[in-house]
Design a protein around this nucleic acid. Sequence first.
DNA 1: ATTTATTTTCAGTAAGTTTTGAAACTTCAA
DNA 2: TTGAAGTTTCAAAACTTACTGAAAATAAAT
Lengths: 168, 168
Amino acid sequence: MKLTEARQQFINSWGAFGTHWGINKTMAQIHALLLISPDPLTQDDVMEQLSISRGNVNMNIRDLIGWGLVDRVIISGERKEFFTAEKDIWKVATQIIKERKKRELDPMLKLLSQLEKIEGNKKDKHVKQFTDTVSGIRKFGSQADKMLDVMVKAEENWFTGALLKFFK
Amino acid sequence: MKLTEARQQFINSWGAFGTHWGINKTMAQIHALLLISPDPLTQDDVMEQLSISRGNVNMNIRDLIGWGLVDRVIISGERKEFFTAEKDIWKVATQIIKERKKRELDPMLKLLSQLEKIEGNKKDKHVKQFTDTVSGIRKFGSQADKMLDVMVKAEENWFTGALLKFFK
DNA sequence: ATTTATTTTCAGTAAGTTTTGAAACTTCAA
DNA sequence: TTGAAGTTTCAAAACTTACTGAAAATAAAT
């Protein structure tokens, strides 16, 4: 397979993959393009290579910067802004975990704690099932939360080494 | 807070949460409703409690059954079909991991292996960056794949006990 | 200060997804 | 069998989200 075709396939699949994870297709595609580009790109480069409008590129790059996955780069002598993606996949993964934890898991756990404190007779099976379910999810979520905290702080080597040995 | 209000909040947030994970709102809401219902429900119960149409309930329940999260229940003497959700959160989580792995991670890893075998001169920085990126993601994905395999087979106690002690 | 290059915003539109509801189908009982 | 109860399907409508492109804002050069 030739590079051009492979690049296209990678960008398309990464986009499709993203949509299964609540990420919009274009944002994932721009990220993919920057990941496989050895040098920083301008907005015009991205527009051209992905055939999308200026506004679309601008908004999605800003989102990617917000996620900590893409950085603005100044190239001296150049008037335009350039953009580049973090290439270390372990860093990309921990960055995503960190953000999603903050944006989604933490607020959900806060809500569940509230809902656990419902008033009502524990003998009523509706009350019982509700509190059992909510506290089950809350406990599971807290465990996951702690685990992810440790992962995010860990080094990649620790992950691939010790943890995987532990997992046999 | 009263049960009725708490149930409503739980169902709504679970629905909103789902949309951040590529799951449609109604499907997540039906799942939430079944999770907090002590007894199996009929399609009409779901229609009424969530104010949604018959077709919508039917399609989404079938999807949930496909995900292995909901079961059809026969109640003798009753003409209608009843539905119930797995209540053990650990089982719910492993079921979701199992399915997403099969539907998304495995095909992605297969594609990445293909793309790694691109033809071209490694000295071309575009070729080099492409293969480096693709193989980085492939390796990371394979590690995650193995880890999830072990998790899915493990018992909940093992997870919350040994693993978390390990994680300090 | 004015022109020129570049980035950002956002109203309108396009594209995509979900929902409805009525018809078709299935199942069971009389 | 026939009919009533229940389930499934799917085309069209409603809704949601993403994208465009041109105008406004900003920044740099002359």
